[in-house]
Amino acid sequence: MRLTRLFPVICLGLLIVLCPIYQKKFEEKRSTLLEESGIGYLIPSEFITTASLEFKGIVSDFLYLKMSTYLGGKIVNKEMMDRSQADFFYNAADIITSLDPWFWDAYLMSSMLLAWDFNRADLATKLLKKATTYRTWDFNPPYYLGFYHYYFLKDNATASTYLMEAARRGGGPGFLIPLATRLSVYQNSLTPAILLLEEQLKTTQDPFMVKHLGTRLKVIITLDKLEKKVAEYKKRNGHFPEKLSDLLSDKLIGNLPEDPYGGKFYILPNGRVFTTSKLRFIK
């Protein structure tokens, strides 16, 4: 009698102990499966917008979260992303913004990723053009379009047009009009990138993104400072320095700066400074 009463209790105790062990094993299997598949399947936007019924907003939030967690995992693990994934990210963002065409976070994160990490400013601008069409009251989409045309596509005329459009919409930072009108002054300068990243940092809440953008800003400020010192060196010596240590021996800099991405800064023959990390973490 006593044994029959104890039996279910023993079973329950055993199950409580065994369940986490089983779950742990299962999680390993599941993570292997997830690693293999990534987030690599996409439901066509024509289908998903209809199938989401009246829950399009929350479905777009969920898909955005899925995309940003995947991306966050890659950045935290300092994994290099395959450039072929650019199309996947573009399509995912296109689906999210078909569900909610006013979803600025989705436009912004994907366009940043495509332009900075995949060097696909063409796809980034395509997304931002969609944002400009829908978010008619917002200065951000034309502002970013302007920046990407200037910085990545080297098209100052189009950049100026978009920055003017951003200024016309109102609500943006005060430097928009001077920046639009004086783009030629900033040719080959990192100033617009610094201004843009500073503005982004001011309006970003997510601590992870703050850290990510902060690192990028830090490197660009360093590049900007080094380029100014290189120009000063040329003024003194009549030629560009060959390596950064030349600036050190000329006492233009106190020490060689470190790249938080793990790369090494170097001077190009035209006096521009770049880094071997290409602003991506090197494992």
Binding site: F55, D61, L65, S68, D105, D206, M209
Partner: peptide
Amino acid sequence: VVIGFFMRELNKVAVDINLSAIS
């Protein structure tokens, strides 16, 4: 809890979740 995972449009996510819950 969830809105903390988003970059800036926290109001959108909060409204989406609450209105979806009501529906």
